[in-house]
């Protein structure tokens, strides 16, 4: 798994590549927590190059969405979610908890 963060004026664009499972999810969580610690609560997660995500990754997304939406200070949105991962998120009932975008520019512009 590889994560890169790009800071825009109104939001952070966090790109996650590779595989998020119980082994790598702690690092994924940490990146998201760090953004929150820096007062960044508007977060777009670009999944274009994400190959795999287990429920360990879903848990990190849920915890971050909760923290970001608190006091209406922000939100996590998902960008370019690969089909297999979208299907798994759907099965877990997560799709209604996150807005999704097909285009990172559109996602960044939505904040």
């Amino acid at each position: 798994m590889e994560i890169t963060t790009q800071e825009f004026k109104h939001c952070d664009l966090i790109k996650v590549k590779g595989r998020v499972d119980s082994s790598t999810a702690p690092q994924f969580s940490k990146t998201l927590e760090k953004a929150n610690e820096h007062g960044r609560f508007k977060i777009a997660i670009d999944m274009a190059e994400l190959e795999y995500m287990s429920s360990a990754g879903f848990r990190a997304l849920l915890a971050t969405q909760r923290n970001c939406k608190r006091y209406n200070r922000g939100e996590v949105v998902l960008v370019r979610v690969p089909e297999r991962i979208r299907e798994a998120l759907e099965l877990a009932g997560f799709t209604e908890l996150f807005k999704t975008f097909d285009d990172p520019v559109e996602a960044v512009g939505s904040f």
Binding site: S55, K69, L91, A92
Partner: peptide, 14 residues
Amino acid sequence: DLSTRQVGGLGMYL
């Protein structure tokens, strides 16, 4: 909803 969503048992459910 988001605030009451539990994640325990998700692995078994999947």
